[in-house]
Design a protein around this nucleic acid. Structure first.
Lengths: 94, 94
DNA sequence: TCGGTATTTCGCCAACCACCGAAATAATGG
DNA sequence: CCATTATTTCGGTGGTTGGCGAAATACCGA
């Protein structure tokens, strides 16, 4: 969970997730969208994969990345838990 | 928004938010809950404040911190936006 | 105004992070 | 088996970050 938040802390990584929201893409396709070295993007993929936010699958000579929706759901739930259910009724609803 | 995610990336800061979820607290009260130097905690307060996640209000010689619920709501919404509304219907619902 | 309590600001340091280019690995086509 | 294409791993660098103790600031009560 900690790793997921840290992963989301970088704009490039959030943009990668945004791209994958539309469709699965290969590492090269994703890298082509950024003015960064491929090795740099590869590092971001690794971070996101480690955080469980994306999934990699080999396809021939390429690697296809896709969103792990349930991990993102859990992360959103964790943020909500941070402000929801204040125990003494002070901000119980919403 | 970027700052909010980075702020949530640190476990100590998330714990601070968790404490403030229960009730507003002074800097000293919060600091007493951690095995860290007050100056270190002060830095965390600053980060959270800068990210808009908490609000500070002077009260005599103390400073009372409280959650900024709406900022946390927006952050949760941003996470959800990352996996929700895939435009081509692939994962349109949920 | 002085002393005390609460909090922040200020160097400082070690660890981490994003970035790069170059070299290494993996898989396909010929 | 070799060349090509896709991707990762490696070594290095500058900038950021979390931690500290000490000094500075702010406010109150006597």
């Amino acid at each position: 969970m900690n790793e997921a938040f840290q992963a989301l802390g970088d704009p490039t990584r959030r943009e990668i997730l945004r791209l994958l929201r539309k469709r699965d893409m290969t590492a090269g396709e994703i890298a082509a969208q950024f003015p960064l070295a491929r090795s740099t993007l590869s590092g971001h993929f690794n971070t996101l994969k480690h955080a469980g936010l994306i999934v990699a699958e080999k396809s021939g000579t390429s690697i296809v990345y896709s969103l792990n929706v349930s991990a993102l759901e859990q992360t959103a739930a964790a943020v909500m838990e941070l402000f929801d259910v204040g125990r003494n009724g002070k901000r119980a609803r919403r």
